[in-house]
Design a binder for these strands. Structure first.
Lengths: 334, 334
DNA sequence: GTGAAAGCGCTAACAG
DNA sequence: CTGTTAGCGCTTTCAC
């Protein structure tokens, strides 16, 4: 049996209104009635229905988070950060994993709107026009996290071009000249940030007068396995290769693993630097040097921005978070 | 602007009731009005409020999931499985991470109850009496996932004793005699399953006439770092150690990592077998042999059970899922 | 086939 | 200080 405000009211010999008042600390009642009401609430184990409240208040204290998957460490770190600030601010989060699937994403958007979420965070997805239209139309305060967009929606991202440039430059400064890159494919998530990373790589090369050849880059997916196959392609394609920059750490770790199986020593034979600095980096063998994009920070920032939008009801300004290379043991000085 | 059923009704020159009927495919209207209503809905981009619906229907199509953290692979795999079946069955999931914190857990339980979730899954937490009391009192259909409990709540788990026995026996059959175990501490999550795992380890040893000494087991936490420190303790405590069984894969991977730093070769110098068979196992170096507890399957099973409880309104029977050892390259035959 | 009206549990004026 | 009343957006009898 779950009680209603009416049950409490009757039992305390007051009106619903009074119960509501003490429930919300609004004042306008005597200490005595307050005590009585609280007592009855305790006694009954009464908890107000957030559903009913939501109906009147137009505020559900629930936010939605759309992620492409649930198993990548990156997403996991995002979720962690978001959930933390949401909880601190008294909201719950509904997670939806879209599998980077357009139709599924639209369905989730509708679903979340039907549930009347207060706000939305889109993480690591490509932001399509239809999403923008929908969000715009129903007016959900939204912020994009690590998601590139051509549409005017606030976002928090890293400067991908710059980060890739930094990673590549780091390799160069360590004396490497034959450097390859393993990138994700064109359609995948984090999409849009793909180009900048590649450009950053190329720019660092050219700024340091290192010749670039298209076959220094190999395209695949964003997973461990792609790192493995990427490595194989790369060593075949570029003779004398000494270092690899991978678009993310998952790929980098895949490279580490494949290298082990192929009898290639890291960093002795080949150096690798990843990107994202996920938790795993420090636990793989050898620990993976990576460019840190401080994801938890990004996620928290995004969440805070979203709540600000909810409160103030106006758009906030996007921000780009800094990065740094975290040196571990997968890069050797030549 | 977000429209209500009334807007649709007016615009279609029918009553709310009729709109509601076509919305729910209830029949009792002409083809013509149906068409008209649908047309207006389309036109307005109307989406019914799940909040209002929830209020009348006493069904929110939202479930809650309580997990101890958000970053362990195990939890991630659970979430993944749960979200998948929930979505297939038309429900959303609110995730809450309790940090194995009793107070926080109770707060979340209350919060979720206030949100009037249809059902609840508790994953990888120790199930305390106060949780049981609360759940019982407010009557949320609940199932425990990989959580030990003395209370009559349906659960899906692995047979921890058996799995630990299997892992240990595997090591023995590979010719190992000096076997250590790294276990989590007493109070942590997955708690309750800790004892069975230790007992399984001991039983396998004694069944194969291998002497057991208390210092063959070292206790710590459940993370990478604990594996590292565990290894150091173990090699000091038991001379001639050739193999280690770790209570979970995270610990096992920590051992791998620490071994690398200490110049200990796996599996040449020392063999290690983990438990859980998380995704990471196959990507670390060397790939970690592990006892598979098929978590996604467990999660899906748990979710299905929960929905069954919601539908049928009666408790379902618990189940214990099988396991198997997944051979990779971290164990050597002596 | 369709509409009117009551009610889900709560909050927010508006009166006293 | 406290109660009455009118919604919030939807579903569901019960009539017509």
């Amino acid at each position: 049996m779950t009680y209603t405000i009416m049950d409490v009211a009757k039992r305390a010999n007051v009106s619903k209104a009074t119960v509501s008042r003490v429930l919300n600390d609004q004042g306008g009642y005597s200490e005595k009635t307050k005590r009585k009401v609280l007592e009855v609430i305790q006694e009954l184990g009464y908890h107000p229905s957030a559903i009913a409240r939501g109906l009147t208040n137009k505020r559900t204290h629930t936010i939605g988070v759309l992620v492409p998957n649930l198993t990548s460490s990156l997403v996991t770190e995002f979720l962690n950060g978001i959930e933390a600030v949401a909880h601190k601010l008294g909201s719950s989060v509904i997670v939806c994993h879209t599998e980077s699937h357009g139709i599924k994403t639209m369905m989730y958007l509708q679903l979340l709107h039907e549930k009347r979420i207060d706000g939305l965070i889109l993480a690591g997805t490509i932001f399509r026009e239809e999403y923008y239209d929908y969000i715009q139309r129903v007016g959900i305060p939204t912020v994009l996290l690590s998601t590139y967009s051509e549409y005017p929606v606030p976002h928090v991202t890293a400067d991908d071009h710059d980060a890739a440039y930094t990673a590549t430059k780091y390799l160069i400064q360590k004396g490497h000249k034959k450097i390859g890159m393993i990138s994700g494919n064109k359609e995948e998530w984090i999409a849009g940030s793909r180009l900048p990373r590649i450009e950053g790589f190329k720019d660092a090369l050219s700024d340091h007068k290192i010749a670039f050849n298209e076959n220094h880059i190999v395209y695949g997916g964003f997973s461990f396995d792609d790192g493995a196959t990427g490595l194989k392609h790369l060593i075949r394609q570029v003779p004398g290769l000494t270092a690899i920059f991978t678009e993310n750490d998952e790929i980098g770790i895949g490279v580490l693993s494949a290298a082990y199986h192929l009898g290639i020593k890291v960093p002795k034979d080949i150096s690798v630097i990843g990107m994202d600095n996920i938790n795993l980096c420090k636990v793989v063998t050898p620990p993976l040097t990576s460019v840190s994009l401080s994801h938890s920070e990004m996620a928290e920032k995004a969440a805070n921005m979203m709540f600000e939008m909810i409160e103030s009801n106006k758009v906030v300004t996007s921000c780009i978070l800094p990065h740094e290379v975290v040196e571990r043991q997968s890069v050797r000085t030549l």
